[in-house]
Design a protein around this nucleic acid. Structure first.
Lengths: 226, 226
DNA sequence: CAGCCTTTTTTGACTCGGTCAATTCTTCAT
DNA sequence: ATGAAGAATTGACCGAGTCAAAAAAGGCTG
Protein backbone atom coordinates (compact mmCIF):
# COMPACT_ATOMS: atom_id res chain seq x y z
CA UNK A 1 0.00 0.00 0.00
CA UNK A 2 1.62 3.18 -1.19
CA UNK A 3 0.54 6.60 -0.05
CA UNK A 4 -0.75 8.53 -3.03
CA UNK A 5 1.34 11.55 -2.17
CA UNK A 6 4.40 9.34 -2.45
CA UNK A 7 3.55 7.98 -5.85
CA UNK A 8 6.45 7.93 -8.24
CA UNK A 9 6.54 11.06 -10.35
CA UNK A 10 8.20 11.35 -13.72
CA UNK A 11 11.45 9.61 -14.56
CA UNK A 12 12.53 7.81 -11.43
CA UNK A 13 14.12 5.09 -13.45
CA UNK A 14 17.72 4.30 -12.79
CA UNK A 15 17.74 5.77 -9.31
CA UNK A 16 18.74 3.94 -6.19
CA UNK A 17 16.30 3.73 -3.31
CA UNK A 18 18.34 6.34 -1.55
CA UNK A 19 18.10 8.77 -4.41
CA UNK A 20 14.42 8.15 -4.92
CA UNK A 21 13.82 8.89 -1.28
CA UNK A 22 15.80 12.10 -1.44
CA UNK A 23 13.88 13.15 -4.48
CA UNK A 24 10.56 12.51 -2.78
CA UNK A 25 11.58 14.27 0.37
CA UNK A 26 12.57 17.31 -1.67
CA UNK A 27 9.25 17.25 -3.49
CA UNK A 28 7.33 16.75 -0.26
CA UNK A 29 9.04 19.73 1.33
CA UNK A 30 8.50 21.82 -1.77
CA UNK A 31 4.82 20.95 -2.01
CA UNK A 32 4.23 21.68 1.66
CA UNK A 33 5.94 25.02 1.28
CA UNK A 34 4.06 26.12 -1.82
CA UNK A 35 0.75 25.02 -0.34
CA UNK A 36 1.31 26.95 2.87
CA UNK A 37 2.63 29.98 1.03
CA UNK A 38 -0.35 30.00 -1.30
CA UNK A 39 -2.72 29.84 1.65
CA UNK A 40 -1.20 32.45 3.91
CA UNK A 41 1.52 34.32 2.02
CA UNK A 42 5.27 33.96 1.89
CA UNK A 43 6.10 36.08 4.92
CA UNK A 44 3.39 34.58 7.09
CA UNK A 45 4.82 31.09 6.99
CA UNK A 46 7.94 30.15 8.91
CA UNK A 47 10.39 27.54 7.80
CA UNK A 48 9.67 25.65 11.00
CA UNK A 49 6.02 25.28 9.95
CA UNK A 50 7.02 24.03 6.53
CA UNK A 51 9.31 21.50 8.15
CA UNK A 52 6.50 20.34 10.40
CA UNK A 53 4.07 20.03 7.49
CA UNK A 54 6.59 17.99 5.52
CA UNK A 55 7.43 15.95 8.62
CA UNK A 56 11.12 16.77 8.59
CA UNK A 57 13.28 18.98 10.73
CA UNK A 58 13.98 22.60 9.98
CA UNK A 59 17.59 21.76 9.16
CA UNK A 60 16.53 19.27 6.54
CA UNK A 61 14.62 21.97 4.74
CA UNK A 62 17.79 24.03 4.53
CA UNK A 63 19.59 20.90 3.49
CA UNK A 64 17.51 20.68 0.36
CA UNK A 65 16.94 24.36 -0.29
CA UNK A 66 19.67 26.90 0.46
CA UNK A 67 17.16 29.48 1.63
CA UNK A 68 13.47 30.05 2.16
CA UNK A 69 13.32 31.98 -1.09
CA UNK A 70 14.77 29.04 -2.94
CA UNK A 71 11.74 27.00 -2.02
CA UNK A 72 9.86 29.14 -4.48
CA UNK A 73 12.57 30.14 -6.92
CA UNK A 74 14.78 27.09 -7.36
CA UNK A 75 12.56 25.36 -9.94
CA UNK A 76 12.45 28.51 -12.06
CA UNK A 77 16.12 29.21 -11.88
CA UNK A 78 17.11 26.00 -13.53
CA UNK A 79 16.46 27.82 -16.78
CA UNK A 80 18.97 30.59 -16.18
CA UNK A 81 21.61 29.18 -18.50
CA UNK A 82 19.17 28.15 -21.21
CA UNK A 83 19.44 31.17 -23.49
CA UNK A 84 23.22 30.91 -23.60
CA UNK A 85 22.90 27.22 -24.35
CA UNK A 86 20.45 27.85 -27.16
CA UNK A 87 22.85 30.35 -28.65
CA UNK A 88 25.79 28.02 -28.33
CA UNK A 89 24.00 25.07 -29.86
CA UNK A 90 22.18 26.81 -32.67
CA UNK A 91 22.48 25.61 -36.25
CA UNK A 92 25.21 27.23 -38.34
CA UNK A 93 23.97 30.24 -40.25
CA UNK A 94 21.21 30.92 -37.75
CA UNK A 95 21.29 34.33 -36.11
CA UNK A 96 21.33 34.66 -32.36
CA UNK A 97 18.01 36.40 -32.45
CA UNK A 98 16.39 33.77 -34.64
CA UNK A 99 17.66 31.00 -32.42
CA UNK A 100 16.27 32.59 -29.28
CA UNK A 101 12.96 33.47 -30.90
CA UNK A 102 12.46 30.00 -32.29
CA UNK A 103 13.31 28.38 -29.00
CA UNK A 104 10.84 30.64 -27.25
CA UNK A 105 8.15 29.80 -29.79
CA UNK A 106 8.81 26.10 -29.33
CA UNK A 107 8.63 26.48 -25.57
CA UNK A 108 5.30 28.30 -25.96
CA UNK A 109 3.92 25.47 -28.06
CA UNK A 110 4.97 23.03 -25.35
CA UNK A 111 3.39 25.19 -22.65
CA UNK A 112 6.74 25.31 -20.90
CA UNK A 113 6.24 27.04 -17.53
CA UNK A 114 9.32 29.13 -18.30
CA UNK A 115 7.30 31.03 -20.89
CA UNK A 116 4.64 31.91 -18.39
CA UNK A 117 2.12 29.97 -20.45
CA UNK A 118 1.01 27.01 -18.37
CA UNK A 119 -2.17 25.73 -16.79
CA UNK A 120 -0.42 23.63 -14.19
CA UNK A 121 -1.91 24.59 -10.82
CA UNK A 122 1.41 24.36 -8.98
CA UNK A 123 3.02 26.58 -11.57
CA UNK A 124 0.26 29.13 -11.33
CA UNK A 125 0.44 29.07 -7.56
CA UNK A 126 4.14 29.82 -7.75
CA UNK A 127 3.65 32.64 -10.22
CA UNK A 128 0.90 34.18 -8.13
CA UNK A 129 3.11 33.92 -5.08
CA UNK A 130 6.00 35.62 -6.81
CA UNK A 131 3.79 38.40 -8.06
CA UNK A 132 2.40 39.23 -4.67
CA UNK A 133 5.65 38.99 -2.73
CA UNK A 134 7.96 41.91 -3.54
CA UNK A 135 11.17 40.21 -2.51
CA UNK A 136 10.38 37.24 -4.72
CA UNK A 137 9.35 39.42 -7.65
CA UNK A 138 12.68 41.16 -7.44
CA UNK A 139 14.57 37.94 -7.35
CA UNK A 140 12.60 36.47 -10.22
CA UNK A 141 13.36 39.45 -12.38
CA UNK A 142 16.98 39.21 -11.34
CA UNK A 143 17.26 35.58 -12.34
CA UNK A 144 15.74 36.30 -15.69
CA UNK A 145 17.90 39.31 -16.30
CA UNK A 146 21.04 39.77 -14.27
CA UNK A 147 22.23 36.19 -13.99
CA UNK A 148 21.04 35.08 -17.41
CA UNK A 149 22.49 38.28 -18.83
CA UNK A 150 25.97 37.57 -17.58
CA UNK A 151 25.90 34.08 -18.97
CA UNK A 152 24.49 35.06 -22.34
CA UNK A 153 26.84 38.02 -22.75
CA UNK A 154 29.77 35.74 -22.00
CA UNK A 155 28.55 33.27 -24.61
CA UNK A 156 28.11 35.99 -27.23
CA UNK A 157 31.58 37.28 -26.50
CA UNK A 158 33.04 33.80 -26.74
CA UNK A 159 31.53 33.34 -30.18
CA UNK A 160 32.62 36.68 -31.52
CA UNK A 161 36.14 37.42 -30.32
CA UNK A 162 36.21 40.54 -32.45
CA UNK A 163 33.18 42.09 -30.76
CA UNK A 164 33.63 44.03 -27.57
CA UNK A 165 32.24 43.27 -24.16
CA UNK A 166 29.93 46.23 -24.10
CA UNK A 167 28.30 45.31 -27.38
CA UNK A 168 27.73 41.77 -26.19
CA UNK A 169 26.18 43.01 -23.00
CA UNK A 170 23.85 45.39 -24.79
CA UNK A 171 22.74 42.67 -27.17
CA UNK A 172 22.21 40.23 -24.32
CA UNK A 173 20.11 42.72 -22.42
CA UNK A 174 17.99 43.39 -25.49
CA UNK A 175 17.33 39.74 -26.13
CA UNK A 176 16.60 38.82 -22.55
CA UNK A 177 14.58 41.96 -22.07
CA UNK A 178 12.15 41.00 -24.79
CA UNK A 179 11.98 37.45 -23.50
CA UNK A 180 11.23 38.69 -20.00
CA UNK A 181 8.52 41.05 -21.19
CA UNK A 182 6.83 38.28 -23.15
CA UNK A 183 6.96 35.88 -20.24
CA UNK A 184 5.64 38.49 -17.90
CA UNK A 185 2.69 39.22 -20.17
CA UNK A 186 1.84 35.52 -20.42
CA UNK A 187 2.01 35.16 -16.67
CA UNK A 188 -0.30 38.11 -16.24
CA UNK A 189 -2.94 36.44 -18.38
CA UNK A 190 -2.60 33.12 -16.63
CA UNK A 191 -3.11 34.89 -13.32
CA UNK A 192 -6.21 36.52 -14.74
CA UNK A 193 -7.61 33.02 -15.17
CA UNK A 194 -7.28 32.59 -18.93
CA UNK A 195 -6.53 29.16 -20.33
CA UNK A 196 -3.11 28.55 -21.81
CA UNK A 197 -4.49 26.93 -24.93
CA UNK A 198 -6.69 29.92 -25.67
CA UNK A 199 -3.92 32.41 -25.13
CA UNK A 200 -1.36 30.52 -27.18
CA UNK A 201 -2.11 32.00 -30.61
CA UNK A 202 -1.85 35.51 -29.29
CA UNK A 203 1.26 34.69 -27.30
CA UNK A 204 2.89 33.43 -30.46
CA UNK A 205 1.89 36.54 -32.34
CA UNK A 206 3.20 38.72 -29.51
CA UNK A 207 6.50 36.89 -29.52
CA UNK A 208 6.93 37.32 -33.27
CA UNK A 209 6.16 41.01 -33.12
CA UNK A 210 8.33 41.69 -30.09
CA UNK A 211 11.36 39.90 -31.47
CA UNK A 212 10.84 41.68 -34.78
CA UNK A 213 10.86 44.98 -32.93
CA UNK A 214 14.21 44.18 -31.42
CA UNK A 215 15.49 43.06 -34.79
CA UNK A 216 14.67 46.20 -36.70
CA UNK A 217 15.02 48.54 -33.75
CA UNK A 218 12.93 51.03 -31.90
CA UNK A 219 13.37 53.57 -34.70
CA UNK A 220 11.66 56.82 -33.84
CA UNK A 221 9.34 55.23 -31.33
CA UNK A 222 7.80 57.76 -29.07
CA UNK A 223 8.60 60.80 -31.17
CA UNK A 224 5.14 62.17 -30.56
CA UNK A 225 3.82 62.97 -27.16
CA UNK A 226 0.52 61.83 -25.70
CA UNK B 1 34.26 74.20 18.64
CA UNK B 2 32.95 71.96 15.95
CA UNK B 3 34.27 68.51 15.27
CA UNK B 4 35.64 68.30 11.76
CA UNK B 5 33.66 65.17 10.97
CA UNK B 6 30.53 67.13 11.68
CA UNK B 7 31.33 69.90 9.25
CA UNK B 8 28.41 71.05 7.18
CA UNK B 9 28.21 69.24 3.85
CA UNK B 10 26.37 70.55 0.83
CA UNK B 11 23.14 72.48 1.05
CA UNK B 12 22.16 72.61 4.67
CA UNK B 13 20.50 75.95 4.21
CA UNK B 14 16.92 76.32 5.29
CA UNK B 15 17.03 73.41 7.72
CA UNK B 16 16.20 73.57 11.38
CA UNK B 17 18.77 72.46 13.91
CA UNK B 18 16.81 69.30 14.38
CA UNK B 19 16.87 68.46 10.72
CA UNK B 20 20.53 69.25 10.37
CA UNK B 21 21.29 66.93 13.23
CA UNK B 22 19.26 64.15 11.69
CA UNK B 23 21.01 64.66 8.42
CA UNK B 24 24.39 64.44 10.05
CA UNK B 25 23.50 61.38 12.03
CA UNK B 26 22.38 59.68 8.84
CA UNK B 27 25.60 60.63 7.10
CA UNK B 28 27.68 59.53 10.08
CA UNK B 29 26.00 56.14 10.13
CA UNK B 30 26.35 55.79 6.38
CA UNK B 31 30.02 56.70 6.40
CA UNK B 32 30.78 54.32 9.23
CA UNK B 33 29.01 51.56 7.39
CA UNK B 34 30.71 52.10 4.04
CA UNK B 35 34.12 52.39 5.72
CA UNK B 36 33.68 49.17 7.65
CA UNK B 37 32.21 47.36 4.64
CA UNK B 38 35.10 48.50 2.44
CA UNK B 39 37.61 47.26 4.99
CA UNK B 40 36.17 43.87 5.79
CA UNK B 41 33.35 43.10 3.38
CA UNK B 42 29.58 43.43 3.65
CA UNK B 43 28.88 40.13 5.32
CA UNK B 44 31.72 40.42 7.79
CA UNK B 45 30.32 43.52 9.44
CA UNK B 46 27.31 43.39 11.73
CA UNK B 47 24.82 46.18 12.13
CA UNK B 48 25.75 46.32 15.80
CA UNK B 49 29.32 47.20 14.89
CA UNK B 50 28.20 49.92 12.54
CA UNK B 51 26.03 51.33 15.28
CA UNK B 52 28.97 51.31 17.67
CA UNK B 53 31.26 52.99 15.14
CA UNK B 54 28.68 55.70 14.51
CA UNK B 55 28.03 56.00 18.24
CA UNK B 56 24.33 55.27 18.01
CA UNK B 57 22.22 52.30 18.98
CA UNK B 58 21.44 49.46 16.63
CA UNK B 59 17.82 50.58 16.50
CA UNK B 60 18.80 54.02 15.33
CA UNK B 61 20.56 52.52 12.35
CA UNK B 62 17.35 50.80 11.34
CA UNK B 63 15.56 54.03 12.02
CA UNK B 64 17.50 55.73 9.26
CA UNK B 65 17.97 52.81 6.90
CA UNK B 66 15.24 50.19 6.48
CA UNK B 67 17.74 47.38 6.15
CA UNK B 68 21.44 46.66 6.15
CA UNK B 69 21.42 46.50 2.37
CA UNK B 70 19.92 49.95 2.21
CA UNK B 71 23.02 51.34 3.85
CA UNK B 72 24.74 50.65 0.56
CA UNK B 73 21.92 50.89 -1.93
CA UNK B 74 19.74 53.76 -0.78
CA UNK B 75 21.87 56.50 -2.35
CA UNK B 76 21.84 54.73 -5.72
CA UNK B 77 18.17 53.98 -5.70
CA UNK B 78 17.13 57.59 -5.61
CA UNK B 79 17.58 57.49 -9.37
CA UNK B 80 15.06 54.74 -10.02
CA UNK B 81 12.32 57.02 -11.29
CA UNK B 82 14.64 59.22 -13.30
CA UNK B 83 14.21 57.61 -16.72
CA UNK B 84 10.45 57.83 -16.51
CA UNK B 85 10.75 61.45 -15.48
CA UNK B 86 13.07 62.25 -18.36
CA UNK B 87 10.56 60.70 -20.74
CA UNK B 88 7.67 62.57 -19.23
CA UNK B 89 9.39 65.91 -19.29
CA UNK B 90 11.07 65.73 -22.68
CA UNK B 91 10.63 68.47 -25.24
CA UNK B 92 7.79 67.99 -27.72
CA UNK B 93 8.89 66.23 -30.88
CA UNK B 94 11.76 64.47 -29.13
CA UNK B 95 11.71 60.70 -29.28
CA UNK B 96 11.84 58.65 -26.10
CA UNK B 97 15.13 57.19 -27.16
CA UNK B 98 16.69 60.55 -27.94
CA UNK B 99 15.54 61.94 -24.63
CA UNK B 100 17.08 59.11 -22.68
CA UNK B 101 20.27 59.11 -24.67
CA UNK B 102 20.74 62.85 -24.30
CA UNK B 103 20.08 62.71 -20.60
CA UNK B 104 22.61 59.94 -20.23
CA UNK B 105 25.19 61.91 -22.21
CA UNK B 106 24.58 64.96 -20.05
CA UNK B 107 24.96 62.85 -16.92
CA UNK B 108 28.23 61.47 -18.26
CA UNK B 109 29.55 64.95 -18.88
CA UNK B 110 28.67 65.84 -15.30
CA UNK B 111 30.35 62.69 -13.98
CA UNK B 112 27.09 61.73 -12.34
CA UNK B 113 27.73 58.64 -10.18
CA UNK B 114 24.59 57.11 -11.67
CA UNK B 115 26.45 56.66 -14.96
CA UNK B 116 29.24 54.74 -13.31
CA UNK B 117 31.68 57.45 -14.34
CA UNK B 118 32.92 59.12 -11.18
CA UNK B 119 36.18 59.54 -9.33
CA UNK B 120 34.61 60.18 -5.97
CA UNK B 121 36.25 57.75 -3.50
CA UNK B 122 33.05 57.08 -1.60
CA UNK B 123 31.25 56.31 -4.85
CA UNK B 124 34.00 53.97 -5.98
CA UNK B 125 34.03 52.26 -2.61
CA UNK B 126 30.30 51.65 -2.94
CA UNK B 127 30.63 50.33 -6.47
CA UNK B 128 33.46 48.01 -5.50
CA UNK B 129 31.41 46.78 -2.58
CA UNK B 130 28.41 46.08 -4.75
CA UNK B 131 30.51 44.23 -7.28
CA UNK B 132 32.05 41.90 -4.76
CA UNK B 133 28.89 41.17 -2.79
CA UNK B 134 26.51 38.98 -4.78
CA UNK B 135 23.38 39.95 -2.93
CA UNK B 136 24.12 43.62 -3.49
CA UNK B 137 24.98 43.10 -7.14
CA UNK B 138 21.64 41.43 -7.64
CA UNK B 139 19.80 44.18 -5.92
CA UNK B 140 21.64 46.86 -7.87
CA UNK B 141 20.75 45.24 -11.14
CA UNK B 142 17.19 44.89 -9.94
CA UNK B 143 16.90 48.56 -9.08
CA UNK B 144 18.23 49.54 -12.45
CA UNK B 145 15.99 47.14 -14.28
CA UNK B 146 12.95 45.73 -12.56
CA UNK B 147 11.83 48.74 -10.56
CA UNK B 148 12.87 51.32 -13.12
CA UNK B 149 11.32 49.13 -15.81
CA UNK B 150 7.90 49.12 -14.19
CA UNK B 151 7.94 52.86 -13.80
CA UNK B 152 9.17 53.58 -17.30
CA UNK B 153 6.77 51.13 -18.94
CA UNK B 154 3.91 52.76 -17.07
CA UNK B 155 5.01 56.15 -18.28
CA UNK B 156 5.30 54.99 -21.87
CA UNK B 157 1.87 53.47 -21.68
CA UNK B 158 0.42 56.62 -20.20
CA UNK B 159 1.76 58.65 -23.10
CA UNK B 160 0.55 56.33 -25.80
CA UNK B 161 -2.90 55.03 -24.93
CA UNK B 162 -3.10 53.28 -28.26
CA UNK B 163 -0.01 51.16 -27.64
CA UNK B 164 -0.34 47.98 -25.68
CA UNK B 165 1.24 47.08 -22.38
CA UNK B 166 3.51 44.46 -23.86
CA UNK B 167 4.98 46.84 -26.38
CA UNK B 168 5.66 49.42 -23.70
CA UNK B 169 7.36 46.84 -21.54
CA UNK B 170 9.57 45.61 -24.35
CA UNK B 171 10.61 49.13 -25.23
CA UNK B 172 11.29 49.97 -21.59
CA UNK B 173 13.44 46.91 -21.19
CA UNK B 174 15.42 47.76 -24.30
CA UNK B 175 16.08 51.31 -23.19
CA UNK B 176 16.99 50.45 -19.63
CA UNK B 177 19.00 47.48 -20.78
CA UNK B 178 21.28 49.62 -22.86
CA UNK B 179 21.57 52.14 -20.06
CA UNK B 180 22.48 49.44 -17.57
CA UNK B 181 25.09 47.94 -19.87
CA UNK B 182 26.72 51.33 -20.38
CA UNK B 183 26.76 52.09 -16.69
CA UNK B 184 28.16 48.70 -15.91
CA UNK B 185 30.99 49.14 -18.41
CA UNK B 186 31.86 52.53 -16.94
CA UNK B 187 31.90 51.09 -13.44
CA UNK B 188 34.19 48.34 -14.57
CA UNK B 189 36.74 50.83 -15.80
CA UNK B 190 36.54 52.95 -12.68
CA UNK B 191 37.18 49.84 -10.62
CA UNK B 192 40.18 49.09 -12.80
CA UNK B 193 41.61 52.39 -11.63
CA UNK B 194 41.09 54.53 -14.71
CA UNK B 195 40.33 58.21 -14.29
CA UNK B 196 36.83 59.40 -15.13
CA UNK B 197 38.08 62.32 -17.20
CA UNK B 198 40.18 60.04 -19.36
CA UNK B 199 37.41 57.57 -19.92
CA UNK B 200 34.78 60.17 -20.71
CA UNK B 201 35.33 60.46 -24.48
CA UNK B 202 35.10 56.74 -24.94
CA UNK B 203 32.11 56.51 -22.63
CA UNK B 204 30.33 59.08 -24.76
CA UNK B 205 31.19 57.22 -27.93
CA UNK B 206 30.01 53.96 -26.39
CA UNK B 207 26.74 55.54 -25.39
CA UNK B 208 26.13 56.90 -28.87
CA UNK B 209 26.85 53.59 -30.50
CA UNK B 210 24.82 51.53 -28.06
CA UNK B 211 21.75 53.74 -28.28
CA UNK B 212 22.09 53.72 -32.05
CA UNK B 213 22.12 49.94 -31.97
CA UNK B 214 18.85 49.89 -30.09
CA UNK B 215 17.43 52.44 -32.47
CA UNK B 216 18.13 50.58 -35.68
CA UNK B 217 17.88 47.12 -34.17
CA UNK B 218 20.01 44.06 -33.86
CA UNK B 219 19.38 43.10 -37.47
CA UNK B 220 21.06 39.86 -38.33
CA UNK B 221 23.54 40.12 -35.49
CA UNK B 222 25.27 36.87 -34.83
CA UNK B 223 24.30 35.15 -38.03
CA UNK B 224 27.76 33.71 -38.36
CA UNK B 225 29.25 31.43 -35.81
CA UNK B 226 32.66 31.81 -34.17
C1' DC C 1 21.16 -12.05 7.56
C1' DA C 2 24.64 -9.70 10.25
C1' DG C 3 27.56 -5.89 10.62
C1' DC C 4 30.32 -2.19 8.97
C1' DC C 5 30.67 2.12 6.27
C1' DT C 6 28.80 6.11 4.22
C1' DT C 7 25.43 9.41 3.66
C1' DT C 8 21.50 11.72 5.45
C1' DT C 9 18.91 13.52 9.16
C1' DT C 10 18.34 15.34 13.42
C1' DT C 11 19.31 17.93 17.52
C1' DG C 12 20.40 21.91 20.07
C1' DA C 13 22.80 25.87 20.59
C1' DC C 14 24.16 29.95 18.44
C1' DT C 15 24.54 34.52 15.46
C1' DC C 16 22.50 38.09 13.18
C1' DG C 17 18.92 40.90 10.85
C1' DG C 18 14.85 43.03 11.83
C1' DT C 19 10.46 44.35 14.72
C1' DC C 20 7.88 46.06 18.64
C1' DA C 21 6.42 48.66 22.88
C1' DA C 22 7.60 51.37 26.30
C1' DT C 23 10.80 54.77 28.18
C1' DT C 24 13.98 58.52 28.19
C1' DC C 25 16.04 62.40 26.11
C1' DT C 26 16.18 66.47 23.07
C1' DT C 27 14.47 70.29 20.48
C1' DC C 28 11.19 73.74 19.77
C1' DA C 29 7.38 77.03 20.75
C1' DT C 30 4.90 79.40 24.16
C1' DA D 1 11.25 77.89 32.07
C1' DT D 2 7.94 74.39 30.83
C1' DG D 3 5.19 71.42 28.31
C1' DA D 4 4.26 69.22 23.80
C1' DA D 5 6.24 66.68 19.93
C1' DG D 6 9.65 64.02 17.89
C1' DA D 7 13.84 61.26 18.10
C1' DA D 8 16.79 58.01 20.29
C1' DT D 9 17.39 54.27 23.39
C1' DT D 10 16.48 50.13 25.80
C1' DG D 11 15.45 45.38 26.21
C1' DA D 12 12.83 41.71 24.85
C1' DC D 13 11.54 39.21 21.11
C1' DC D 14 11.02 36.44 16.40
C1' DG D 15 12.63 34.10 12.34
C1' DA D 16 16.33 32.96 8.99
C1' DG D 17 20.39 30.69 8.55
C1' DT D 18 24.91 28.24 10.39
C1' DC D 19 27.63 24.86 12.82
C1' DA D 20 29.25 20.64 15.20
C1' DA D 21 28.25 16.51 16.82
C1' DA D 22 25.14 12.69 17.58
C1' DA D 23 21.78 9.51 15.71
C1' DA D 24 19.59 7.00 12.03
C1' DA D 25 19.13 4.84 7.70
C1' DG D 26 20.67 2.93 3.24
C1' DG D 27 24.07 0.22 0.88
C1' DC D 28 27.65 -3.12 0.66
C1' DT D 29 30.32 -7.12 2.12
C1' DG D 30 30.92 -11.51 4.00
Amino acid sequence: MVKSSETATAAEDGLSLRERKKRRTAIRIWRSAITLFAERGFDEVSVAEIAAAAEVSKMTVFNYFPSKEDLVMAPMEQHTGEPAEVVRERAPGTSVLDALRDQFLAALAAFDPATGLSDDPMTIAVIRLIHRTPVLAMRASTSFTYAANQVLAAELLAQDPAGDRLHAQVVASQLLGVRGALTSENQRRMLAGERAAEVLPEAVENARRAFALVERGLGDYGAHRG
